[in-house]
Each structure stands twice: as structure tokens, then as C-alpha cells.
């Protein structure tokens, strides 16, 4: 419990700034939406005239941006990216910092097992991604309601939030397992952020062309596609199963690697 509480305390400032960033993003996004919705010229026509690749990369493809639902679906792409970056850096950082700051020599001289250290830290990280997810949900519901002139979509937004949480868990575990497995954990943050970027690019790529449909299995961003969740109002059991399995594997690998590693001091 002591390590868990200390980690939460250590990260409270960082969590606060992430919260601010999300609020700022949603406010600016929704005020733009107001502009789109009220403008006479249709934003949808502008997007249709864009090359398919560009609109896919920007997350516009196949969305009605003049409806609040369509516009919010586009926002979730950016929210997923932000929360994914938060999770991946948090996962890598919370595990590796004891070694990069050389405090592991202090911590591991206490009567604690490596399993306990890892578990406490992952639990603290998990708590934070849930907090940030809830913050995002509340911010989204409030800002969308404030600018929305059509029927309320609050229940759709709430329904969508678990998809972002799944993504956060994915990237938290990717960051944490890099930090647990790599010999030089200080590179874990950079490398796992690279993985996040790569999977994001793959997911845009899948949107552009149908030829590489199988690639959707290679990127968690495609597992929980806001467009599908919004329109079909359901989650894919296949992708949930893949996520649960992958998280279990990453957790096991991190556990084994962390127990075996020679702490670098």
C-alpha cells in the first residue's frame, strides 16, 4: 500500500496537467464544432473534396461532422491518441524511474518482493488511467452538451468511454513491459511511444485502403473504432478477447522479466 500511495502522490501534478490538457482540447474542439454546425457551407463537402488519405489520417473519413455525434467520433481519435500517450509514458516511466533515478537501491533494500513493487506500481498507474478516463468522460459530456444544438448524445459518449479505457490499458502495458524487459529502461518511454505512433499510422493506413484489412489486427486503435461503436452501438467480442489475452501475456512477461532483471544502478 505504501508504494501505491507514494506513486499516486508523485504523479498528482502530472495527472492534473493532463486533465487541463483534455479540458482545453475539448473546449477548443467543440467551439470549432459550433462554427461548422452554424456555417452555411457544408463542412462535409469540404471533406469530401479532400484526398481520401488526408481525411482518413485526420480521422474525418465517413463521418458527418455537422452532427454532434459525428464530430465527437472524430474527437475521440484525438482523445485516444492523447490518453494513449499518457498511458504509454506512464507505464514506462513508473516502472523505469526507480532505476533511472537510482532510487531502486533505496527501495529494494526494504523488505519487499519485486512482485510487490511491480504490482503496486501497475495498480497506481491503472488508478490514474481510470481517473483520466473519467475526467475525459465528464469533460466530453459537459462540453458536447454545452455546444450541441441537436438531441443529446451523452449516453453515446458514456458508451464509448470503455473503448478508450481498453486502449489505455493496452498502451500502459506496452510501456510497462518495455521498462521491465529492456536492459536499459531509460529508453523504454521513447521506444514504447514509437510503438504507439506506429500503430496509429497503421490504423490510418487501414482507413485509406481496403487492401490491407488484415492490418486492423495489428493496431489496438482499430480494435475499438468509435465510428463502429457509435453506429452499431456494440463492441467487438473478438477484439475484447484479443485485448484481454494480450494484456495477460504482457503482464506475465513483465512479471517474469522484472523478477529476473539485474537492476542497473
Amino acid at each position: 500500500m505504501n508504494i501505491y500511495l507514494k506513486e499516486l502522490k508523485d504523479y498528482r501534478r502530472s495527472l492534473f496537467f493532463w486533465t487541463l490538457a483534455i479540458i482545453a482540447f475539448m473546449l477548443s474542439a467543440m467551439s470549432k464544432y459550433q462554427g461548422y454546425a452554424r456555417s452555411g457551407t457544408s463542412i462535409n463537402e469540404v471533406i469530401e473534396s479532400m484526398p481520401a488519405g488526408l481525411s482518413a489520417a485526420l480521422g474525418f473519413q465517413g463521418l458527418d461532422l455537422q452532427s454532434s455525434g459525428g464530430f465527437f467520433a472524430m474527437c475521440t481519435l484525438y482523445l485516444s491518441m492523447m490518453l494513449g500517450v499518457h498511458a504509454v509514458l506512464l507505464g514506462a516511466g513508473i516502472i523505469s524511474k526507480e532505476e533511472t533515478d537510482k532510487t531502486i537501491e533505496f527501495l529494494y533494500a526494504r523488505p519487499v518482493s519485486r512482485g510487490y513493487i511491480l504490482f503496486s506500481k501497475l495498480l497506481a498507474a491503472f488508478t490514474q488511467i481510470i481517473i483520466l478516463n473519467i475526467v475525459t468522460a465528464i469533460t466530453s459530456v459537459v462540453t458536447v452538451a454545452a455546444f450541441n444544438e441537436g438531441p443529446s448524445i451523452s449516453s453515446d459518449i458514456i458508451f464509448l468511454m470503455p473503448s478508450i479505457l481498453f486502449l489505455q490499458i493496452w498502451f500502459l502495458m506496452i510501456g510497462a513491459s518495455f521498462a521491465a524487459i529492456m536492459r536499459r529502461p531509460r529508453h523504454a518511454g521513447m521506444l514504447s511511444a514509437g510503438v504507439l505512433l506506429a500503430t496509429f499510422v497503421i490504423s490510418s493506413f487501414v482507413d485509406i485502403t481496403d487492401r490491407f484489412g488484415f492490418l486492423k489486427y495489428a493496431t489496438p486503435f482499430k480494435y475499438f473504432d468509435p465510428k463502429t461503436i457509435f453506429t452499431e452501438h456494440s463492441y467487438s467480442m473478438t477484439f475484447i478477447s484479443i485485448t484481454v489475452t494480450a494484456v495477460a501475456i504482457l503482464l506475465t512477461l513483465s512479471g517474469i522479466a522484472y523478477k529476473k532483471r539485474n537492476f542497473s544502478i
Binding site: D101, K102, T103, E105, F106, A109, R110, P111, V112
Partner: peptide, 15 residues
């Protein structure tokens, strides 16, 4: 380790 007190050569603590 319950019964060990350790003092490292270079002391690094949490910021």
C-alpha cells in the same frame, strides 16, 4: 531484509 540496514555509497533519493 527486515533485519538489514543498508547504506549505499552514493545516496540517491526521491526528488
Amino acid at each position: 531484509k527486515r533485519q538489514i540496514g543498508y547504506m549505499p555509497s552514493e545516496v540517491f533519493y526521491y526528488e
